[in-house]
Each structure stands twice: as structure tokens, then as C-alpha cells.
Simulated assay, not measured.
Amino acid sequence: MTRNFWYDRIHRLCEEYVVSLPEEELKEYTIAELEQWAMRRIHARSTSPVKLHLRSRNDLPAREASYEIIPGGRWLLKICDNLPVYFVDLDSSDLEEHLLFDPRNIDPRISHGEPFGDRLWIDHQSPRLSFRIELCLVDQGASFECHIPRDLRSLRGLYIYQVNLIGHGASAILEAQIIATFRRNTSTLWHAFNDHYFVSNSTAPTLGIFDYRQAMECFDYPLIGCYTRAHTLEYHPTEFEFINEDVLAVYYITPSFYRI
């Protein structure tokens, strides 16, 4: 029945079992809320798999979607093929889907595209849950067709949203705000981003580094044609990811090795 008891328990969970920290500062929680948070994470580690039946108010036919669980285990993102992104509060009893954002509300020119991949960047320095999600949009039905005219390929858009936790405890929700929108002039789909930089490789073994803060608050598709810096690589990278602030890990499948 003391805060220090649950502070210690939560820190042990995070350190020994690699559980993500609570979504808000510990001082924001009551003792009862600290207990509830800790017990949910303890039970989650020993619970058999269950099927989730999500409820949606959307009357459109069900379409293919991909899913992302935000570290911490409470929020589930649903990225639909028809572009909207929804979130579900897994701590809630009704598991209802709520619209997080829809890129078509920003620009009607993208109504005929389809999403290809998404990435998250978590702000671990923020006292409350805060992250960015990037959604890459490609020409519908033509993700890997190199014969598409270059001017059409350049219409592929990439959208970066800032998502913050609004409210407290059980009444909290996620709220998204678009912060950068731009088009790409390359057919490559391998890329990574953090809070400052967007990196991408082209057909040549080159890593382009773009400071996407230049595209902040600009919603008329600024073209990524001039990177802040282009770095020549020995081989074609298969995948890359920011692993700590501005530290980038690059993986090559042939030959098989990582470079930091």
C-alpha cells in the first residue's frame, strides 16, 4: 500500500523482464493505478494466447491490414490497405477501433495509392508516451514495376505523424498530427527514420541522408531530390535501422554482415 513498493516492483519488471516503462511518469499514477499497471504486465507474461475480436464502427467491407503493438503492450495500431490507421486500447473492455489518422484528409491526390510498410520511432526521452509513425504510399498495384514512367513513380508519398498520449489512465487516448509530407523520386522501398533524419538507398549502392525537418509543416510534396548527404556503400544494403539516436545499423545479406 505504498508508492515505494510499486516503484520498486515496476523498476524490477522493466530491468529483469525487459518490460517497457509506463506511458506516464510514475508520479502521475495513484497507488491503485500503479498496482493495476504492474499486475497487468505480470499476468500478461503467464497468460495463454487469446483471440481478439476488434469492434469497428466502419461499415466498409473488411480489407487487408497490418498491425503494430506499441512497446508497453497497451496500444495496438491497425494500418489498413485503404489508408486509414486505427488504434485499439487493449486495456479497454470493448476493444473498439478508433481512427488515428487518414492521409486522404490531408491530400486528396493520394486516394488511389496503397500503403507499403510503416515504421515507428519511439521518443524514449519523453516523460509520456510519444512516438512518430511513418507511412509510405506507393502507386496502387505497381509496387515493384520498374516500367512505370518516372513522373508517376515520383508521386509516391511518405507521411510522418507525431503521436502523443492525451489524457490520463483509463481515459487516455492517442492523438496524431502530421508533421512532414514529401514525395520520393526513387523506386527503392528500403528506408529508415528517426526524429531528425530519413535515410534511403537507391538503385546504386548509395545511402541518401535527408534532414526531414526541412519538410516540417510543408504539405505540398517537397521532392527528396537533394539529400543532405549521400554516402557511397560497398554493397547494396538489405535493411537498415536507427538503433540509438543517430546511430544507424546497416545489414548486408551478400556478404552477410552488419555495419554501424
Rank of each mutant, 00 (worst) to 15 (best):
D118Y: 14
G117D: 04
I106W: 06
I122M: 15
D102E: 08
L137C: 02
D107S: 12
R128K: 08
L120Y: 06
P115D: 09
I122D: 07
C136N: 13
F101A: 11
Q140W: 14
L120W: 04
I122Q: 12
G113C: 12
H112T: 08
V138L: 13
R104F: 04
L129K: 05
V138S: 08
Q140S: 15
D118W: 09
D102G: 05
D118N: 15
A142E: 12
S130C: 15
R119W: 07
R104E: 10
R132I: 03
N105E: 05
R132D: 10
F116T: 07
D118G: 03
P127E: 01
F101S: 08
F101E: 09
H112F: 10
R132S: 11
H124A: 11
L100G: 05
D107E: 03
F144C: 01
F116S: 13
R128H: 08
H124G: 07
A142Q: 13
P115L: 07
P127K: 01
P103M: 02
P115R: 08
D107P: 02
L100Q: 05
G141T: 05
I122K: 10
D139K: 00
H124V: 06
D102S: 07
L99D: 06
S143D: 09
D102A: 04
P108C: 03
I122L: 15
P127L: 00
F101Y: 15
R109K: 08
A142D: 07
C136A: 10
P108L: 07
I106D: 06
G141Q: 04
N105D: 02
L99C: 12
G141P: 06
N105A: 00
R128Q: 06
E134K: 09
Q125S: 13
S111H: 09
D107Y: 01
L100N: 05
H112M: 10
R132Q: 14
R132L: 12
P127Y: 01
H124M: 08
H124W: 11
W121R: 03
S126K: 05
Q125T: 09
A142W: 04
W121S: 09
E134Y: 07
I106L: 14
I106H: 06
P115A: 10
V138N: 12
V138Y: 09
I110P: 00
F144K: 01
V138Q: 11
I110F: 10
Q125D: 12
P127A: 01
F144D: 01
G117Y: 03
S143L: 12
G113R: 13
F131N: 02
H124E: 15
R109S: 12
R119L: 13
D107H: 05
R104W: 02
A142L: 13
F116A: 11
S126M: 07
I133A: 05
I122N: 06
I133Y: 08
S130E: 14
D139M: 03
S111P: 00
P115H: 08
L100K: 04
D107V: 02
F101D: 07
